[in-house]
Simulated assay, not measured.
Amino acid sequence: MKVENIHLAGVGTYVPELVPTERAVKAGWYDADECEASGIESIAVEDSVSAPDMAIRAAKTALERSGHAPDDFAALYHSNTYHQGPDGWSSPHYVLLNTLDRPVPALELRQGCLGMLASLEAAACRLTACPDKDAVLLTTGDNFSTPMVDRWTASKLFLFADAGSSLVVSRRSGFARVLSVGSLSDSRMEALHRGGEKLLPPSITEGIPLDFDSRIQYWRKQWANGVKPPVGHFGDQVAAVAERTLKEAGLTINQIKRFCHVGFNLDPLQAMFLEPLGIEPEQGIWETSRRIGHTGVSDFVIGLERLWLSGEVVPGDHVLLIGAATGMEAGCAVLEITEAPGAELTAG
């Protein structure tokens, strides 16, 4: 979707203490060979701050940087990949109360790790269609410090990390202009992340932990018994959505200065994202993600903030945000950096 007059006015993140993967190996949490193959040096782990509270901390930073007042906002969109608190409770309204504290809609977007990109697209549509307000607040937070997730073994593609992030989407101005945003799905692959688990009752209510690897193992056994798994080439979706979104922005991939991607381990990151796009790890945010891990929805927001604050992208540069969600779905957004951070942000 091509976007007109939509900007990112503020960005904020909350990244907790980093736990070295070497420590996890010594403690027996993580296999040594898998650790070496992953390329991941450490992951962010938060033992005491909840997912919504991490989102609130990130949002307060984004709001301060944005120059927007609470009355400017039309809505708050909160995205996440994992449980936020008590069942039947509204984490978006908790975030709203502790940030804008205005009677605007507070919505939860459950689009997996693409939640922030889906929220960005929804915010652009809302600001385009409803001219009465000038901004939408996007927040996200995930905390996997729970007995129902073994962050070190639940997936061979990544290590679960904790973080919160926030963007202020504005029709006025900002540090980046949104040129286009969109996604592309292949629902035939949804069973890959369902495995052999039944839908009712939900697995979490029966004490079954989140374990993507066991679901992949299920399909390997099915394949050995002659049942073909629902496998497609996800890299084709990544390449296709990037090509479409770049075309909508009037750019080619050679005009992109940096790529902000998901925080996968090195081999799956290259196979699913970097190689389909024809780019090298140094063009992305590997040096950041290898120290933080896969934070669910916050990966590319953390990457974007660090690229901007460090001066690795400057006004006139183009940045592509690229991600994935179970389903399977790939999505991206194309940005143009329009302002450098102030001296107060880059000091120290």
Rank of each mutant, 00 (worst) to 15 (best):
T205G: 11
A129F: 08
D211S: 14
Q222P: 15
A123E: 02
G207V: 07
R110E: 14
P201C: 12
E190C: 03
T140A: 15
P209N: 10
A161P: 02
A123S: 10
G174W: 03
T153E: 08
T146D: 13
C113V: 05
W223H: 14
W219G: 07
R220Q: 07
L192P: 12
R126M: 14
S155L: 03
K221S: 09
R151K: 06
A129E: 13
G141D: 07
M116N: 13
S173K: 04
V169N: 03
G112P: 12
L137Y: 14
L137D: 10
K156A: 15
S166P: 03
S183M: 02
S180N: 09
S203G: 09
I208R: 13
N143G: 08
D186E: 06
W219P: 14
S183D: 09
S187W: 08
A176H: 02
K198Q: 15
L179V: 02
D134M: 01
K133Y: 10
C113L: 01
P131S: 04
S119K: 03
S185V: 01
E197K: 11
D213F: 06
G207Q: 09
G195V: 02
S185E: 13
P209I: 05
G164W: 00
V169L: 05
L114W: 14
E190S: 13
L167Q: 05
L117W: 04
V136A: 12
D213C: 00
W223F: 15
Q222K: 15
L157N: 05
Q111T: 04
T205L: 15
A161L: 01
G164V: 03
Q222T: 11
R171D: 09
L138Q: 04
W219C: 13
D150Y: 10
L210P: 06
E190W: 11
Q217A: 12
V169G: 01
A123Y: 08
E206V: 07
Y218D: 14
F160D: 05
C130M: 05
S173N: 14
G182W: 04
A154D: 08
A124C: 09
